[in-house]
Design a protein around this nucleic acid. Structure first.
Length: 438
RNA sequence: CGGGGCGUAGCUCAGCCUGGUAGAGCGCCAGCUUUGGGAGCUGGAUGCCGGAGGUUCGAAUCCUCUCGCCCCGACCA
């Protein structure tokens, strides 16, 4: 993509309404614009990141055996009256009336909807287990939306729902999601730590919050030092096999939010205890028959007996993750994207848009990068070098390839790694080879 | 929902106390000169001063109401 033809409205100064770093950087880097409190538009650069995050979530859900569906944002009130949550949910739920005066609502979550779909079609234990998920916009009319995309009222969420015949099966489903979650966050370069959690209004009795460590996180967390070296992706996962040992391994390591942490009772020695800030990016629940019973999600068992299915639900804040990644990875100059979610892999910078020789060299490289399948944002604008460097650092692409007259005299270009700031002069050939390996 | 703050140019903000008809820096447009870490000069455009009502000869400024946004707290993917 040529920057001269892109829509990337950068801000040089910090908008006054943005207090936390991810919000500031997302606005400054032209990723989002606010529409009203807690509601945002996603601009091209931000949308690319959102899509990448979404895709990683999708791939790991699919790998775990979950099946993607897409449920509507607007739901009928009757479903929620059936489960008993229509009155319980309170003002967080945006209630709408259609032209026929029918009570509708903008879904804050989809347990009722999915249970309805399930009960209409699944009648036999032989069709279990199943896990259905979708990635859809939610609306929760938060009293106090804040922190940009991290606590919006409208947000993109992946929510999965598992259906099993019995508690043991439900625990296996829970384990699959537990593993998929650890892998999902690890792939985004995040250290996500599962912590025992209260179940809140969703209900149930087995639940973990996944909290990533970030200096700017909202909550105080405590964990065993071993978490810092945890390499989730090193383990081979067989979703068809027994995941309990893996889950056991990662739930045994101490981790607690400040609400649950008791310094006196803490089993971790002081020198092994890490105190850090955290952001919740996922939450999984096992809640048994809380919805299946009142809503009649019942299947015939092996002997023909009616069995209310055991359910769990599993959420990931997809849009929140975009902010969370920034909270976890930035410096004074701007964002530092992990490659897996970066909007582009490479920023190609032509320092002299007025110099025919530089333009020719940059154009040629741009064509070859495209042919090599490397996602490149090509800064072909006629701007001063300083402005270009600052813009590239701000938007945080993992690599920058700089072409200028000084280097070209020697037949060299400069490759800079955003994360480390390390720069290296090398031939265009060598640069292509280096990037091709990415 | 309780407490606090702020709405003036695209962004950051001054002006408000003490009323006299709107400013700066950056950005934007044009031209020239520049060019390896947010360049310089010259010229130019941009505002229902959040909205409504009131006081006044006169309101960005004073008063009343209202809307919006932000922060702290209680709650949340």
């Amino acid at each position: 993509m040529r920057l001269s033809a892109y829509f990337l409205p950068l801000l040089r100064e910090n908008p006054s309404e943005a207090q936390i770093v991810s919000h500031r950087l997302m606005l400054r880097a032209g990723m989002i614009r606010q529409s009203s409190a807690g509601i945002y538009s996603w601009l091209p650069l931000g949308l690319r990141v959102l899509k990448k995050v979404e895709q990683i979530v999708r791939e790991e859900q699919d790998a775990s055996g979950a099946l993607e569906v897409l449920m509507p944002t607007i739901q009928p009130a009757e479903l929620w009256q059936e489960s008993g949550r229509y009155d319980d949910y309170g003002k967080e739920m945006l209630r709408i009336t259609d032209r026929h005066e029918r009570a509708m609502l903008y879904g804050p979550t989809n347990e009722e909807q999915i249970t309805d779909i399930f009960r209409q079609s699944v009648k036999s234990y032989r069709d279990l287990p199943r896990n259905l998920y979708h990635i859809q916009w939610k609306f929760r009319d938060e009293v106090r939306p804040r922190f940009g995309v991290m606590r919006g009222r409208e947000f993109l969420m992946k929510d999965a729902y598992s259906f099993d015949l019995d508690a043991a099966g439900a625990k296996r489903s829970y384990n699959r999601m537990f593993v998929a979650y650890l892998r999902t966050f690890a792939r985004m370069g995040l250290k996500a730590i599962p912590m025992r959690a209260d179940t809140g209004p969703i209900g149930g009795d087995l639940s973990h919050e996944f909290i990533i460590l970030a200096e700017t996180g909202e909550s105080q967390v405590f964990c065993d030092k071993a978490w810092l070296d945890a390499d989730i992706l090193a383990s081979e996962i067989d979703y068809a096999g027994d995941l309990e040992p893996f889950v056991e391994r990662w739930t045994r390591l101490y981790a607690a939010t400040d609400e649950k942490h008791d310094a006196k009772a803490c089993p971790v020695a002081e020198d092994r205890l890490v105190t850090a800030r955290g952001i919740e990016v996922g939450h999984i629940f096992y809640f048994g028959t809380k919805y299946s019973k009142p809503m009649g999600a019942v299947v015939a068992g092996p002997k023909g007996e009616p069995i209310a299915v055991e359910m769990g639900s599993y959420g990931i804040g997809v849009s929140r993750l975009v902010g969370a990644v920034i909270e976890a990875s930035h410096d004074d100059a701007g964002i530092i994207w992990p490659e897996s979610v970066a909007p582009f892999t490479l920023g190609l910078v032509n320092l002299r848009a007025a110099d025919a020789r530089c333009v020719a060299a940059a154009d040629a490289l741009y064509a070859r990068l495209g042919a090599a399948g490397i996602e490149t944002l090509y800064d072909d604008r006629d701007e001063s070098p300083g402005a270009k460097f600052a813009a590239m650092d701000l938007i945080g692409l993992p690599y920058q390839l700089v072409i200028g007259p000084r280097g070209l005299d020697k037949g060299l270009v400069e490759l800079k790694e955003r994360k480390t700031g390390r720069k290296e002069e090398l031939s265009p050939e060598a640069a292509l080879n280096r990037l091709g390996g990415k």
